[in-house]
Design a protein around this nucleic acid. Structure first.
Lengths: 228, 228
DNA sequence: TATCCGCTTAACGACTTCTTAATGCTTTTG
DNA sequence: CAAAAGCATTAAGAAGTCGTTAAGCGGATA
């Protein structure tokens, strides 16, 4: 599994990280909320271990921003020293999937992470489908009407988000966040990428899938499919 | 949510069940492992609360059989008085999704159940409805009598506020605040936007929904619907 | 080193949306 | 009932956004 640990105490971080790495997982670290959030948005982790007490942005903020702004539903396990019911409820409310109180057993942490990752996988299929468009996340292959389509890395990222969200509208800002993280390019590069994505996905076919919501963002939807 | 409680202690079962029912959930009970497993297999619950100490078949067996034989992946929250690490690990190994140790807070139980049910279920679209008018907040699509209506961003913002408030009156100032924030335009731009909103929503249909409250603001109501 | 590929930037026209202002109608108020 | 204020309607220009194209930069590749 690929796991992100957001924890400001280096001892705890190292302790947890070492254990998980010994168990064969790949571990990334962040010492504060901002970089943690950034890593979580840009990468695709199987699970995130999130301490509540963080310098700058605290854990609840990180979780909430991850869910609402970045619209990522990577499983989050919250970690805290304080053990009040109120705290826990608030943690779950911001979108946490599990909650452990220090001190805890490393084995239990790993077991819970594994359960979270297992659940998360079940929801997100390995192949995204919208109409006749398919995107295999394992082979990073895109095809429409059975014909293979090759895309740039940026195109893939955009397409993934659009397909995940379909038929919802994805704001320009969210797309930019997904591709570049917090440090956006100076110019409106997104427009050019959308254009080339359209060239690859829509232009060779009869029905265009990518729609523009002027002033808001984009939307990927198959017109014939049943909408609500 | 539809929840199954498998618990042999009638006091605890009643206690938990009453609380969950008060919170608006539908609860089923089973006093032993065999009937619990049977109910879990036959029905589709959103989550299962499973005690470990059960007469006959114990909780671990129930969980394992549910997963392996019945191949159901209904979320399972295990409940136990014993708090050994070994127990917990075994619980997760048999396919539990969460694990709580007695005594526990009912509110936390509900929060965890909600998280479990949330995963694995597709997020249902958020839709505002007033009469035959519908506004899907995810796809940003508006329709009336099934016919699609396209609106510009400002129109969407106004409509959202009016529909949220319906059938109450929304003051001009509140609407302006919603669209422009604190820095309002110099002229009374709101009137023009309301006008174009009416053109889109009311003009093509028989019954107008947007009413003017002179000197106060606007109101969106379906006249036929029951009002207070 | 030369070539390719992907990304960014810039520029331009086309298009959409927003604001402003002018005019006439409706409601309120003294 | 008349004046004043608030509102509806319309049109036109300003401002903003989008699609498209092409040039330049830098890293990777051969």
């Amino acid at each position: 599994m690929k796991i992100l640990i957001i924890e400001d105490n280096p001892d705890i971080a190292a302790n947890v990280g070492d254990y998980l790495e010994d168990r064969g997982h790949v571990v990334d670290f962040a010492g504060d909320g901002v970089t943690g959030l950034h890593l979580a948005v840009v990468n695709d982790f199987d699970a995130i271990v999130l301490d509540l007490m963080l310098p700058g942005m605290d854990g609840l903020d990180v979780c909430q921003k991850l869910r609402e702004e970045a619209r990522k539903n990577t499983p989050v396990l919250m970690l805290t020293a304080r053990d009040t019911l109120e705290q826990k409820l608030q943690g779950f409310k911001t979108g946490a999937d599990d909650y452990m109180v220090k001190p805890f057993e490393l084995q239990e942490l790993e077991a819970r992470l594994q359960v979270l990752a297992r659940r998360g996988k079940a929801v997100e299929p390995r192949v995204l489908k919208v109409g006749d468009l398919e995107y295999n996340l394992d082979t990073l292959t895109v095809s429409r009407e059975g014909k293979e389509i090759t895309l740039n890395p940026t195109g893939l990222k955009l397409l993934q988000r659009l397909m995940e969200a379909s038929p919802r509208v994805v704001s320009r800002h969210e797309l930019e966040l997904r591709v570049w993280g917090e440090e956006l390019p100076d110019s409106d590069s997104l427009r050019v990428h959308i254009h080339s994505l359209r060239n690859a996905i829509d232009k060779p076919f009869d029905v265009p899938l990518i729609q523009t919501r002027h002033g808001i963002g984009y939307r990927l939807v198959h017109p014939d499919a049943v909408q609500t």
